[in-house]
Simulated scan of single mutants.
Amino acid sequence: MKLLSLLLALAMLLLSPLHAAAIDYKIVTASERGTYIQIGRDLAKYVAPAANIGLEVLPSKGSSENVQRLRYEPGVKLALVQSDVYQAFLDQAAAGNAQAGRMIKPLRAVMPLYNEEIYFVVRADSPLQYIHEIRDRKLAIGPVGSGTALSATTLYRLMFGKPLPEANATYISNEEALIRLTTDKSIDVAVIVAGQPAKLFVDMKPEARRYIKLLRLDNAAPETERALQTYYPAQIEKSSYPNWVDEPVPTLAVKAFLVTYDYGAAHGTADNLAAFAKSLCSNFDTLQEKGHAKWKEVKLDLPTLGKGWSYYPPMERALRSCLANRGQNDTRPMLNPASSGACTQQQKVLGLCGT
């Protein structure tokens, strides 16, 4: 009897790792109708299970809030963050903002993902045609704490050499911005950051053409040249929004990153996140085949990061090992987004001061 009990106990010990309960982690993304949340859901569906992780996908106001939640919210281990938002926190920390330093210094990049297009939406009867014509107009730029707010205010400052006047800034959701744009007309331009195809626009009916249109990037404008110091040229494709867009629309874009926290190599979370990184690499072809269309734009590599940026070593090692097995290892340097000023407005949209 004792021998039978001993054998049963031994069998349970041997089998338990195979049936261990998944570890519950969270990833913060963005709005329910944006691209980030769909990318998060793809990671939860195609990547997390092989790492024995149950990944809960959480909506948020966007990148700035994601930085704060990754830093302080229990259970949040991963976040999707725009490159200009991450850089803005680093710039604030370098300028002596202790709060920004506490939030950003322990965070680490996992890998760059794709470019997110920036949409400048105006009424169909608006006299505006180009992005550089938004000077002195009333802009809806996303909620305080969103990546869109950071991108909009940074772009404005780069293009025109001055901050967006607070009297011209409205901090509201993308959905509310489109409503106000076409009803009470209290705003002139809705600035929206979302990887195409974005559900917000995919769901629109053909009648939308009668109400709204997109502004175009003019490569000959000096304001465009200044914007391209930090942002990337991009194109909104007709195929992404056949109900709305008649031809490709040139615009600007910002890079999306998968980000985590520096738990240290000895922390128990390090092994779990390393397993997640290994699964991300192993299942990358599945992500590109079955996930959101944006995965097709992601290149599985770890380019050299800009000053102040660094990868999380346990995940970096797992990815580089997998990349070596796949015959890939791209170390091309990434563009380091330019430092930006106008601290008062920037601190506001980063959530570093009161609204």
Results as ranks from 00 to 15, higher is better:
E73H: 09
L128W: 13
T153P: 11
S64N: 01
I118N: 04
S173T: 15
T286L: 06
I192M: 02
E117Q: 14
A51P: 01
Y130E: 06
Q229I: 07
Y171L: 01
L139A: 12
D330P: 09
P250W: 03
V76E: 05
Q99H: 01
N336E: 02
P127D: 09
T269R: 03
G308F: 03
Q328S: 13
L4N: 02
M334W: 11
A265C: 06
A266F: 10
Q346W: 00
R123E: 03
P233K: 07
L90N: 15
M315A: 08
L43N: 11
E117C: 10
G291L: 09
G264Y: 01
L215A: 07
K290H: 10
M1S: 11
L215Q: 11
E316H: 14
T260F: 12
A277M: 03
E297S: 15
K278Y: 02
L178W: 00
H292E: 03
V81H: 05
L3C: 07
A227S: 13
L80G: 06
R71T: 07
A95M: 14
V110Q: 14
L15W: 13
K162R: 15
G291R: 11
T251M: 03
T29C: 10
L164Y: 04
K255M: 09
K26A: 15
E207L: 14
T148S: 11
N66T: 07
A88W: 00
E32F: 13
K205V: 11
F284W: 01
H267N: 15
R332M: 12
T251I: 03
L252C: 00
T170V: 12
R320W: 12
V47F: 04
L55T: 13
K45G: 12
L113F: 06
